[in-house]
């Protein structure tokens, strides 16, 4: 089984870094989709099968918090795990994201290993849930 991942970040540099990090994974990866903001991400999420979302918080048009709120209200999208990868270090903002159900929060700068570890963990949880 291959996994499809959506990377949501307004920075093309970060999207490329994420894709490069994910390419090092031992997991069987399918397509890695990209979106520049939350609005673009919702279009991809409603069109494609996505196993994990890696999302930034501060983005133009629609930020990550608004994206996660929109996903949590949509029964079709609410089960898709989200890992937040952001420069955000504000404890209250991170606590709010956790109440919205994010699976993990990585702070920038990140290492490829941190991204892989977070994605592996999330996919393992997804696999265990589907077995149960």
């Amino acid at each position: 089984m291959s996994y499809s991942i959506l990377v949501v970040d307004d920075s093309p540099v970060i999207r490329k870094m994420m894709k490069r990090s994910l390419s090092l994974s031992k997991l069987e990866l399918g397509t890695v989709y990209e979106a520049c903001n939350g609005q673009e991400a919702l279009v991809v999420l409603r069109r494609e099968w996505i196993d994990v979302v890696l999302a930034d918080i501060h983005m133009p048009v629609m930020g990550g918090t608004e994206l996660i709120e929109a996903m949590s209200k949509d029964p079709e999208l609410s089960k898709i795990p989200v890992v937040v990868v952001s420069a955000e270090r504000n404890a209250q903002a991170i606590a709010h994201l956790k109440t919205l159900g994010i699976c993990a929060h990585l702070t920038k700068p990140f290492t490829p290993e941190q991204v892989l570890h977070a994605v592996d963990d999330v996919l393992e949880q997804v696999a265990q849930r589907s077995v149960a």
């Binding site: 420069a87 270090r89 504000n90 702070t107 920038k108 700068p109």
Partner: peptide, 11 residues
């Protein structure tokens, strides 16, 4: 992006 990272840590 580097400034974004620096700023989050600095704040």
């Amino acid at each position: 992006e580097l400034l974004n990272m620096i700023s989050g840590s600095a704040l």
